[in-house]
Write a protein that binds this DNA or RNA. Structure first.
Lengths: 341, 341
DNA sequence: CTGTTAGCGCCTTCAA
DNA sequence: TTGAAGGCGCTAACAG
């Protein structure tokens, strides 16, 4: 029964046990300088016997580095953020950096205090776009590398994102040109997130290039309930549309379900498209036409970029993270073979 | 352009700027002792002007605590681990603790070094059951509180889990008694995770209590591809079954898709059940009968328990985290109303 | 209410 | 190849 007051072994305990100085212990533990084989053995044995593990805080303080990266994400609903997180963590681990995660939930915004505490414990910080007020970010930027992920390049912040606008224009164009739709509407609120704004821009552009009027976006958040709401708004206004380009799959799926329940046919009466290619997208009938992003790569890239900024290496060009439109039945395309993914 | 060599302000800079001692700065920053209003103002002003943020490592070293919790999870596929993570993070944040996350992927096991580095930077550690060798855990336990989440109570480790066996027995019994199936088979490998083992036990028990023979489990992992494999194994053996109790929803969905493609009817030819109630489970037709766990609560509870172990408070009884069977069409039950979640 | 002064555990010159 | 000693930035007595 280890009492809460068991301090645990320190580098001094190990040095004593091994009959050497703490400097030597330190040296064998990080292979910084050469140590005779025999001394090394002794030290390692002592370490093992005592179950010694160097306090990270002491290391960091002395070394002047936290060896950690911070990541700020919204709720982990759907595969998008999980993928991002996985990519980030994997890359960080590969760089021997640990990751400190902070989640921002609707009812639990990341106040200045929490953000500061996070920033105070890491060497660099990746933040999802649109999650934290610019002035808070600006302040952090002065202390350590800060990267805005999947946000638009707001003035002065390093940013990193997958392509949005062109893909949105592409799906919209597909619905218009390949399936003859003429009155598409966008489901989502361009204000809730930079990503959504860029997607709406692509949507807009496709319409404008064809001389079509651009209807106001349906608005609402990115969750399933918001999709239901959007559908009901559509029904209430008499459905002045024949295609719905949704800001993500959650919305698209819920909206489709609600409209179908109301007796409408997808893609017969209206085409529907989503974004993210969640698992359900390939299982529903009709399959959901959507856009797949290299989210995992995005996360990994974020970690690498941060690391380079921290070590002072020249940040190599991020390149463009391309997305891919996945055509299924919901836009009117023939359903691809079996539902197996 | 902040050079990588900008050390940033320290408590000394702030003390100087405010014309007080570092002790006073420390006091106002953590409200530990009373400070005159005027001095407080001065200090706060200096802090603000300098954008000062206390190095976490220095704080931790002096205070003897990391104010952080570690969490080790496998890949974040499906909603299960994301939910767990969210619950954990939310609770930790509420306790003013940050969370350090380590992911274990198939091709990237958590070797002793990485695990030690993680443990060295936190005050307590929650690890998903079955992810890390017992001896590694055992060693960590000697240094700091360690909690095994969603694993069986392996000898000597504090553990925490949602109910598995009774629910598994319940779904199995439902399929047998309510739908008259007689030759169910279990899809999943009891060896891959403690959870799966307990579910298989429940499955087994339901059969034994009815004097039915217990077929060998189908084996395989927990991903969609494994579900497809299981389906094909079933097809290859001539389908000696009329019900498949799957270890999770991914398997169940993929398996159903594969069997359906082969011309079999669900639930007509065979009933299928899953576990976790992923989003897709409510969207597919027939809806997937599954078991929903309070995963988020599990995560939160883990954080709280760790905190209590750390602060030495008497750990309050975890209680039983109850699960709930969600009946949909795939077992033969009438489909619940509309697909809207 | 405020300042002085030891450490916290480790890394890293600088000598030997 | 090894040891001694001085910080790293902060907290927490202990005096005033």
């Amino acid at each position: 029964m280890p009492t809460p007051e068991t301090p645990g072994p320190t580098i001094y305990s190990v040095a004593d046990a091994a009959g050497v100085s703490i400097a030597t212990v330190s040296r064998v533990l990080q292979g910084s300088a050469s140590v005779s084989a025999r001394t090394r053995e002794k030290v390692l044995a002592a370490v093992d016997r005592l179950d010694y593990m160097p306090r990270a805080s002491a290391r960091s303080l002395a070394a002047g580095q936290h060896e950690a990266l911070g990541l700020v994400l919204p709720e982990l609903h759907g595969p998008y953020f999980s993928e991002l997180l996985m990519g980030f963590e994997e890359a960080a681990a590969g760089l021997d950096l640990s990751v400190v995660l902070a989640l921002v939930e609707p009812d639990r915004p990341l106040d200045g205090a929490r953000f500061t505490r996070l920033a105070a414990g890491v060497d660099g910080l990746a933040v999802l776009g649109g999650l934290i007020p610019d002035d808070v970010l600006r302040r952090a930027t002065r202390q350590k590398p800060l990267l805005v992920v999947a946000g638009e390049g707001t003035a002065g912040f390093e940013a990193l994102a997958a392509e949005n606008t062109a893909s949105a224009e592409q799906v919209t164009a597909h619905v218009l040109d390949a399936h003859g739709r003429t009155r598409p509407v966008f489901a989502g609120d361009p204000e809730v997130a930079p990503d959504v704004r860029l997607r709406f821009e692509g949507f807009t552009r496709a319409l404008e290039r064809r001389g079509l009027p651009v209807p106001a976006p349906l608005g609402g958040g990115l969750r399933e309930a918001d999709g239901v709401d959007a559908a009901e708004r559509l029904l209430a206004t008499g459905m002045p549309t024949d295609a719905v380009v949704c800001a993500n799959d959650e919305i698209a799926l819920a909206l489709t379900a609600r409209l179908t329940a109301a007796g409408l046919a997808v893609p017969g009466d209206l085409a529907v498209t989503g974004w993210d290619d969640v698992m359900a997208a390939s299982y529903v009938r009709p399959g959901l036409t959507t856009v797949r992003q290299p989210v995992r790569d995005l996360g990994a890239l974020a970690a690498h970029q941060l690391h380079e900024r921290i070590t002072g290496a020249a940040p190599h060009d991020p390149g463009v993270l391309e997305t891919r439109v996945v055509l299924r039945g919901s836009c009117g395309c023939p359903e691809p073979a079996p539902p197996a993914p």
